[in-house]
Design a protein around this nucleic acid. Structure first.
Lengths: 252, 252
DNA sequence: CGAGCGGATTTGTGATCACATTATTTTGCC
DNA sequence: GGCAAAATAATGTGATCACAAATCCGCTCG
């Protein structure tokens, strides 16, 4: 309620946007357990806002597929299945491959430098065994490429897809990573971007996504379900209290 | 996966959903003039509901790119530019090409019959010179193919893209249509679906989209702007009254 | 005449309330 | 003691109100 005067020229400072960003961040960081129920009043209580902005933020996330809503009425973090991973894999190969191809034509020198730096930081984190930073830098690397493509609608679509696969990307660590030949692929991608070789850039990006998500799909059990990235503490039937800190949010 | 036809939101009777559907329908049918300002209270007044469901529906449409919101605060129907059309063209070629390829592997006999019927109805409408029905049937044809692909996330993404290009598809009539070799392409697509030839199905779908949207992009003026599908009655500066019937909406 | 200024109106945002529906717990009967 | 039915709590939905920022409009001054 007490809302100090917002900075004149800042970005979107609405509570709705802040709630949206908080939930998105929590999802990306895996602070929600897949299958976890999320109530409007709970989020509103944790963030200290009323139901109104929470409703709008959650509704949007449901529309984007980041949460799902049962016909009765409860918002949940979606559970992942092999079929969903394979569908997302194929879509992401198309769109992120397209973005890489566009980036090969449009990337500036400074943007390629950003991409190269991110690639170095991935290696640095990986040699330290720091998989949290590793994951973060992999994300930065990819989005540095997509930013260079300069296609706003395409970028928005890709962000939505990452929001759905993101929480399960933890599953790639550490087994998959250790067996990965990632560095060579990323180097070929960077070389292709610099040379303006769109076909190679696309192919390298597609291969990267195919390998990662095919691996995740292979983790499904006999029913096609995939275990959560961070196994939820669902031992028995814990009654979630209002202060259940399944995720930490702040509106800053 | 036995994924026949699960109605995801079939039984959603909420006002929010009805407002969303109404606005979506109005956009698809070109009842909004590109650039037109749309206020929450106006929509609420026309539909006879309060601001709450209107806000959530419009917010979602803004997130999907069907409307756009200025940093100040006014919701508008986006204006189309050559760059946007070309971006949408390339994205749609990827995603709808992918859907056609998937459909070639998954389409049932009944689904192919639906697709074939839609193709016949396009020709029937076209020989009658009935471009309204023509457009509707083209849409049905495409979405019959995408439904056969049985990829729910992919379908949702494609629907969002059609929402952005849809209002401008009127521009294809009648000049583009009369010079089109559409029937042959659709027939080859159907043959490929029946034969399970994914590569050909994809190629035919890509060609269809490339030709249509390249044509629309070519209609841009020297500034890259593309005229609205239905030229708005913006002679001078008409002050929109509360009952201004720029679009007709009803909540069922 | 035209540009700047100030008040009035418009408009999106967030909070709060009321309500219907669903979920959960308690009660009552055999 | 087990199970169904009633009572209670939880939860999403929609309407309404208050408010601040943005827009609009008429006025005055140069």
């Amino acid at each position: 309620m007490p809302r100090t005067a917002p900075p004149p020229d800042a970005a979107d400072t609405s509570l709705r946007q802040q709630v949206y960003a908080s939930l998105r961040e929590a999802l990306t960081m895996g602070r929600f357990a897949p299958g976890q129920k999320v109530t409007f009043r709970y989020v509103a209580g944790v963030l200290g806002v009323s139901l109104t902005p929470v409703r709008e933020a959650l509704r949007r996330l449901v529309a984007e597929g980041a949460f799902e809503m049962n016909p009765n009425r409860s918002v949940r973090v979606p559970l992942m299945t092999r079929d969903k991973v394979l569908e997302l894999r194929d879509i992401r190969m198309e769109l992120e491959g397209l973005a890489a191809a566009k980036a090969a034509h449009a990337a500036s020198r400074a943007q390629i430098a950003d991409i190269r730096r991110a690639a170095r930081e991935i290696l640095a984190a990986r040699t330290r065994g720091d998989s949290a930073t590793d994951r973060q830098k992999v994300r930065e690397f990819h989005f540095a490429v997509y930013a260079a493509a300069a296609q706003p609608t395409l970028l928005r679509l890709i962000e939505g897809l990452w929001l759905q696969t993101g929480p399960y990307m933890n599953l790639l660590y550490p087994d998959f990573i250790s067996s990965s030949r990632g560095p060579a692929g990323r180097q070929r991608l960077i070389d292709a971007l610099q040379a303006g070789d769109a076909a190679t850039a696309r192919r390298e990006m597609e291969n990267d996504i195919r390998r990662a998500l095919s691996y995740v799909a292979g983790l499904a059990d006999e029913n096609g379900n995939i275990a959560p990235a961070v196994p939820a503490t669902v031992g028995k039937r814990r009654r979630p209290s209002t202060r259940d800190a399944a995720f930490e949010l702040q509106v800053n």
